[in-house]
Design a protein around this nucleic acid. Structure first.
Lengths: 225, 225
DNA sequence: TAGATTGTTAATCGATTAACAATC
DNA sequence: TAGATTGTTAATCGATTAACAATC
């Protein structure tokens, strides 16, 4: 009974960043790296790095450190990057089109196979070689072409309806750019990219900073009196 | 000495979601809401909701709950949404253009004032009414038009150089879509949107799920023998 | 007043950091 | 072997949840 010991999402969230740094190191011909060196580069503790990696079984060697190439490959496997993924775009607007044209996903094995939209004007066009079909064909397309991931770049009103259709499809995950929460059966994983939430967090930081500055100023002023 | 008691980023990260739910409630004419009702809608604990709000001083009333309109406005203020923000786009490619065309930011008071790119072909065009200028003009533009936020949608190689230029500009924050970490003086806040990191996390979830399913299957098979 | 629900303190849980024995 | 650095356990820190007195 190899009960999966449920790795915390905080750990998973850090993996892509490790992967990026290790890829860069490898590209620069660095063969080995210690948790201490990596910790300095990444601005985290060496302890955290070792703890994180040990969730998946040790990848290092005492007295040596980690082999860059090997560790890079292993983290890639943990992230499922040794598999190819078929994706569809749902909503062929500006953001969706930009995602299709962004070739870095393809380089990592994530392939857009088709796009779907309610706008008829798009059906005779292609986006970077990808055909655009009517929404009605989505469900059957998913079945016929074994699609893993649906990328939702549609307004929130439509997103809820589309999510309902997708609940009944043999899809594995939804990458959700619509500004709403989707509720789907547990077998369908959802990752949200809420751009306006991100912008609001930045806005908070801007004003929090200003507050602390003006506080310092008034404190300094009080000092003077 | 009103020492700012440094609110944890976990709390801040949740604020935009509260804001969204409260906006929806308000739009639906709901006047009041209790932490318990809201907790059920949002799938979090009522305790967390009350703790979160109390970091900023209580917004509710015993025996009544929270006034939807008021709480919505207060969270907006905490997030700095009562201020207007001037933004520039750095990198007028597909993703950048899509962001300019996405009008929801404007509705929240975030205005794109100009775009900058190294591609000369873009200088005589506009993107949704926004002019595109040569990169060299960026620094002076920031000064002249009191820009708050630079939105970076450029390849990682360029991003590091641009970040260096921006370190010397009176900018308050960077919204970074480039797939690299930027290091900047503390006065400039950075919020990263690493799309490929997000996609990798989704990929992890897909395969983690499949593993646990195949484990169940082999467990069931073992049972049969 | 009685009922409801907050604001807040205390208890629990989980994640991060520190420390060090194991071992290459 | 001696030195380095991991893997891992224990200590600390912080965040979440539970509980309940305050109060509308």
């Amino acid at each position: 009974m190899t009960k999966q010991k449920e790795i915390s999402s905080a750990v998973i969230a850090r993996l892509p960043r490790y992967y990026r740094y290790l890829g860069d190191l490898r590209d620069n011909g660095v063969e080995r790296i210690s948790s201490l060196e990596l910790s300095r580069m990444m601005n985290v503790t060496a302890s955290q790095i070792r703890q994180d990696f040990n969730h998946f079984g040790g990848f290092g060697q005492q007295g040596y450190g980690y082999n860059t190439e090997y560790l890079y490959a292993e983290i890639g496997k943990i992230l499922g990057l040794d598999h190819k993924h078929n994706m569809i775009l749902v909503g062929a607007g500006n953001l969706g089109s930009a995602l299709i044209k962004y070739m870095n996903f393809r380089n990592r094995g994530f392939y857009f196979k088709a796009a779907f939209d309610i706008n008829e004007a798009l059906y005779d066009r292609q986006i970077a070689g990808i055909d655009v079909y009517p929404m009605e064909r989505m469900a059957s397309y998913i079945r016929d072409y074994s699609i893993d991931i649906a990328v939702l770049t549609i307004p929130k009103a439509q997103a809820v309806k589309v999510a309902e259709v997708l609940s009944g499809c043999p899809i594995k995950a939804i990458w959700n750019f619509a500004h709403t929460d989707l509720n789907l059966p547990g077998r369908i994983k959802v990752e949200n990219v809420h751009l306006s939430d991100s912008l609001m967090r930045l806005s908070y930081e801007i004003h929090r900073y200003e507050e602390s500055v003006s506080e310092q100023n008034s404190a300094a002023q009080a000092e003077e009196n």
